[in-house]
Design a protein around this nucleic acid. Structure first.
Lengths: 174, 174
DNA sequence: AGCTAAAGTGAACAACGTAAACATAGAGAT
DNA sequence: ATCTCTATGTTTACGTTGTTCACTTTAGCT
């Protein structure tokens, strides 16, 4: 994991990863057919970690719209905390097959948007929009286009602000 | 430009670019200090092109909220049309300095959000949110996480849907 | 023509992903 | 205890990449 940490956000080389583990570069090929497969495996770990962090955050925020907003903020914070890993998770040549991904994150997203939007088609659009905003913020911050400021994350991912018609803070106190 | 086109979305190597121009790899170093500088120059070209396409699209749509929505769709379509170039434009090690960028796109974005939101602070947040959505959609589609479907772009970047409080379609027929 | 500055060249280096041939260690069966 | 098979490792080597260095070529000016 060493080569994947650090704030540099640079993609780790196969040889560097092998060095970290204390093994020759070609030994990797006993376990993975090629570098892309290695990356895929690492990406899967990352997705699992992100998913668990997100559901923990949602739970802590008490679920509902507030919890939904927290999953978004957690997404962005995760990207900033693990730049290289985050890039690896999404910048793969071809997407990870659905079956490969224990996608806690996606399930959470769908459940949340179903709850927020009445109409199921609207819910799907809402899900993709929510994902896109979080992903866009994450990417723009990683690439230095937008200040990687925690308060900015807060402000941009404010559900009351973003989806004012979907009724959010009102459901906590019925 | 040859190595930057094509649907593969792969980053072009310095040597490949040199080959395309019909020159030895080291000749490049007479014009750019290193590969990053070359990339930066190409990125600048890309940003200029994107900006002009966006303002053309906004004009054709008749300006206003409809024009704003079009700039977003144009952003995403540009990314899909020039995957490698688009990645180059944003995935640079360090961001392009503001002074370097003749940022027609950014100016357009700010003007548009100023017009949509009354409050200037709200306008800035709105601008960043709009950019993030468009960028997120573009990235997720480029990475195959979301179907690169034109009608989906349309649906996700529908301002009436996205920012219902900011009053959009009503200003066309006063 | 001759000088100078700009632009291009080829050879070489370290690092990368990967392939091929060979080595070793441990488990199970005899 | 030995033999054998399989899993895992190593060394060496190839082609590609970004980059440096020492040269050569080209173009423009006087």
């Amino acid at each position: 994991m060493n080569a994947l940490e650090g704030p540099d956000g640079k993609a780790p080389s196969l040889r560097e990863l092998a060095r970290d583990v204390g093994v020759s570069p070609t030994a990797v090929y006993r376990h993975f057919p090629d570098k892309q497969a290695l990356d895929k495996a690492l990406a899967r770990e990352g997705l699992k970690l992100l998913g668990s962090e997100q559901s923990a955050a949602a739970k802590k925020a008490g679920g509902g719209a507030a919890g939904f907003a927290e999953t978004g903020r957690t997404y962005v914070r995760f990207a900033l905390a693990h730049p290289a890993l985050f890039r690896l998770m999404f910048t793969q040549g071809r997407p990870i097959e659905d079956s490969d991904v224990p996608d806690e994150a996606r399930a959470l997203l769908i459940a949340n948007t179903r709850a927020l939007a009445g109409n199921p088609e609207r819910a799907e659009t809402l899900a993709l929009q929510a994902w896109s905003i979080a992903h866009g913020i994450a990417m723009l911050m990683l690439d230095g286009r937008i200040p990687a400021d925690d308060s900015l994350i807060e402000r941009m991912l404010d559900t009351d602000n973003l989806f004012p018609d979907q009724g959010s803070s009102s459901e906590e106190s019925p």
